[in-house]
Design a protein around this nucleic acid. Structure first.
Lengths: 262, 262
DNA sequence: CCTTTTGGTTCGATAATAGAACCAATATTC
DNA sequence: GAATATTGGTTCTATTATCGAACCAAAAGG
C-alpha cells in the first residue's frame, strides 16, 4: 500500500512544466481537484524542504533548484556526463549535427540529453520534454521495438484520439514493422516543425529497448539522403552505448510498463 | 502547518547523493531513524510516481529519471540554457578555461551550471554538488557579500568544527572583508585538489548576492597571474548576468535564510 | 463601491498513518 | 552445512495526522 498524502503531494510537482512553470495556489487546487487547504499545506511542506518556492512578488509557486541537484545524482548514476556524453559529442562532431538521447518512461519518450552541433541554432528547449511514443523518429524507433502487447496498449490508449490528424492505426503498425526490419528510422517535421532526425534504438543486455540515439538537424538541410550518410557514424558507436547499459541499471518506469502487460 | 508524512518522504530523497546513489531499504530507515515499514511505503509511493526505482538485481533503490524532467523545468525558468549558458560559453571561449555558475541555497553553495573548456580534462562531476560557503573562491565570494548576521550564523555553525584543518575565524573574516573590497577572489586547491578558480559575485536587483561566476582551471596552469588576466572578461559580462536576474525570480532558500536572521 | 478572487488559517470528524510483530529469502558466521 | 543475522516485504489496529467546510484579510476586477 502506498501513501495517499505523498501521492497527492507528488502529483502537484507534475503541474509545473516549461510551458507553465508558475502556478497560483488555487489554480493547482482546481487543476488537481484537491481542496486548496491541502494544496497549501503540501506546498508549504515542499517549500520548507527546498523543493518549491513562492515568488514573493507574484505570490505564485515555482519549482526550486533542489531539482537541479537531484537530477545530477541521476545523471551521474546513468553515467551520462562521463560515458554517454563523450560518445554523443563524437557523433555530433563527426556528423556536424545535434545528437539526442531519448529514453522510455512509462509509455512516453523523454529527452534525457542533447548535444548541440556547433554551427547551428539551438533546438527549442527540449531536454526533459515528454511525448507520446508514436510521434517522431526518436520515439517511433522505441515503440517499434516494444513487445506487441505494449504497442497495442499504447496505441489504443492515446493514439486513436489523435488519429485523424495523423495516420491510420494500420499504417502506423506497418511503419513499426518496417522500422524493426530496417533497424533505424528517419522523420521530418514530426516533433518539431522544422527539424528532421534519424534514430537508432538502444537496448539493454536482455535486448529490451530502453531508448534511442538520434542525429537531428533543420529539415531544409537534413534530408533523408543526408541522414543516411550519418547512419554509419551512429552505428559505429551504438554498441558502445548498449554496452554502457549492460552495466548501468536504468531507473525509469519501463519495467513497470513491461510487467503490467505480461 | 506542514505535512509530516510528506516531510518524511522528502527527507528520503536527500540520502541519495552522487557518492551514494543506491540504498537498501533498511539502510535508509537506519540513516533517517524511521521505521523501515514507513520507509518501505514511501519508497513504493515514489516508485509508483516514477521518482525512485528499485534495481531488480541488487534490490537497492535509486532516484529515477523524473528528476531530469523536473530539473529542466527549473533550468528553463532560470533561463539557464537560453540566457546564462551563452554568456558562460563566451567567457569560456575567450578565456580558454571552464566556467562555473554557483548559487546560494540554504547556507550552502550549489554548482548549477558548468561550461567546460574545449582543451581540458573535464572537472570531477560537480553540477548539483553542494558545499559549505567557506570553502573555495566561488563559495567564499558569496559568503563575503552576505549580511554580517548570516555570515556569523554560517561560520559559527559549521566552520568552527573544521577550523583546525583550515584557518582561524578571525583570518576568515579578514578574507571576507578583503573580498568585499576587491570585488573578486582567487583560490587554488580548496574545492578540488588540483583546480584553481577566480570568482565574481552575482547580485539580484536589490543588490543581494545570489551566486557567483567563476573561471576555473588546473592549478599548475591557472595561477593567480593567469587568473587576473581573465578578470576583464568576466567583468565584461557580469552586468548582463545581473541583468538577467533582475527579471527572473530565484527559487532557492536564500530568502528563507535571510528572513530567519533579521 | 461592491463583488469576486486571491493566499492563508482554524478545528473537529474521520480516514490514513505508524510501527510492533510477523513472514520468507538471502547473506553471513562459525 | 547448520545456526544466525539481515535482507525486503506484509499485516493489522491503536493512534494520530490529515481532510475540508467555514472562516479570514487583502488584493483584483467590475
Amino acid at each position: 500500500m502506498s501513501s495517499k498524502t505523498v501521492s497527492k503531494a507528488l502529483s502537484i510537482l507534475d503541474v509545473f512544466t516549461p510551458d507553465r512553470p508558475a502556478w497560483g495556489l488555487r489554480d493547482i487546487a482546481r487543476e488537481l481537484e484537491i481542496s486548496h487547504t491541502i494544496v497549501h499545506r503540501l506546498l508549504k511542506t515542499f517549500e520548507e524542504e527546498g523543493y518549491i518556492f513562492q515568488n514573493p512578488e507574484t505570490h505564485k509557486y515555482e519549482l526550486g533548484i533542489k531539482f537541479i541537484q537531484l537530477s545530477n545524482t541521476v545523471e551521474e548514476r546513468l553515467r551520462i556526463s562521463d560515458l554517454i556524453n563523450p560518445i554523443m559529442k563524437n557523433i555530433s562532431v563527426e556528423t556536424g549535427e545535434s545528437v539526442v538521447f531519448t529514453v522510455i518512461d512509462n509509455e512516453e519518450g523523454l529527452f534525457v540529453k542533447i548535444v548541440e552541433s556547433e554551427h547551428q541554432v539551438r533546438f527549442a528547449e527540449s531536454v526533459g520534454k515528454r511525448g507520446p511514443l508514436y510521434i517522431g523518429a526518436s520515439h517511433k524507433v522505441i515503440l517499434a521495438h516494444l513487445p506487441d502487447e505494449v504497442q497495442d496498449k499504447i496505441i489504443n490508449q492515446g493514439f486513436l484520439d489523435h488519429a485523424p490528424q495523423l495516420v491510420s492505426k494500420k499504417s502506423l503498425l506497418e511503419t513499426l514493422e518496417f522500422i524493426r526490419q530496417q533497424g533505424w528510422f528517419y522523420t521530418a517535421g514530426e516533433t518539431l516543425n522544422d527539424a528532421a532526425a534519424i534514430s537508432v534504438p538502444v537496448f539493454d543486455p536482455k535486448k529490451n529497448v530502453l531508448g534511442s540515439i538520434s542525429v537531428a538537424g533543420p529539415s531544409y538541410r537534413f534530408t533523408k539522403e543526408q541522414a543516411e550518410k550519418v547512419l554509419p557514424v551512429i552505428n559505429k558507436y551504438i554498441d558502445k552505448i548498449d554496452d554502457i547499459f549492460s552495466k548501468v541499471f536504468f531507473p525509469s518506469r519501463r519495467d513497470y510498463l513491461l510487467k503490467n502487460i505480461t
